[in-house]
């Protein structure tokens, strides 16, 4: 009887009273998002034949507005990408043209990476799109994480379910997997190199991988980031693209 009770207790404790998933996501949000961000990053794309690295500087305000300027290699330098809500413009200094990317083009990959424009454009909060639930605990690279399973509550999302591994102490995601409706794993994101910036924890390196394709994926590294600085309003305008 006593053993049975102990076993029951262990079982109960083991399946744990997990914290509320929405609470975790809220904390993640608080940690990750800011009024605005300015960062410099490098993106390394592993092709079938070679790899290449692109550096850029980005300004973003909330999730709705962002501007990215490519700095190198020389060929890309000066190319700017402006996102306002659900619209995307790209400006290239060589051709001195601004092109609006729309419709089916949004589903193409960005710069040959494993990310599509559409992946980049998603600006709605996860909590608005998904029903979250903590479904387990795991240790990743020595960090204890909550495993959150997110199920879409709206229809127009690209991925029906996601799994997010959230650091239990720092409240940043360390890994994310994106699934098709039937549960097929489509993409995996691994976040690492966590540093403390302006009082927040932030993963500086992100590895994206399209799981259906052969290949080594795309590596995204933030070399410098500032939160909540002053960003001039004109930066988020089409006129600024040409400057």
């Amino acid at each position: 009887m006593k053993t049975f009770f102990m076993a029951f207790l262990l079982l109960f404790l083991g399946s744990g009273p997990y914290p509320d998933a929405d609470e975790i996501l809220a904390k993640v949000d608080a940690n990750m998002s800011a009024r605005n961000r300015v960062f410099e990053s490098t993106m390394t794309i592993h092709g079938r034949r070679n790899s290449r690295t692109i550096t850029s500087r980005s300004w973003s305000e909330g999730d709705a507005r962002s501007l990215t300027e490519y700095l190198s290699p020389a060929r890309e330098a000066g190319t700017k990408m402006l996102k306002l809500e659900d619209r995307l413009w790209i400006y290239s200094p060589i051709s001195d043209r601004t092109i609006q990317i729309s419709g089916h083009m949004l589903r193409q990959s960005v710069m040959g990476s494993d990310l599509s424009y559409e992946d980049m454009m998603e600006d709605r909060k996860l909590t608005d799109l998904y029903e979250a639930e903590v479904t387990g605990e795991e240790t990743l690279d020595g960090r204890a994480t909550w495993v959150l399973t997110l199920t879409a509550r709206v229809e127009d999302v690209a991925y029906q379910t996601r799994k997010v591994w959230v650091d239990q102490e720092r409240f940043i995601p360390l890994k994310e997997e994106l699934f098709a409706k039937n549960g097929q794993l489509l993409k995996r994101t691994e976040l690492s190199d966590v540093v403390r910036v302006d009082g927040r924890w932030f993963p500086r390196t992100v590895l994206y991988k399209d799981m259906l394709k052969d290949g080594k994926g795309t590596e995204f590294h933030i070399s410098e980031i500032k939160f909540d600085t002053e960003i001039p309003e004109y930066l988020f305008s089409k006129a600024a693209l040409k400057q």
């Binding site: 794309i45 060929r75 190319t79 060589i94 051709s95 092109i99």
Partner: peptide
Amino acid sequence: ITFFGSTMYGSMSFYN
């Protein structure tokens, strides 16, 4: 016209 596509290495390409 402007051609918009991707280069041999996957970068964005603009060409008038």
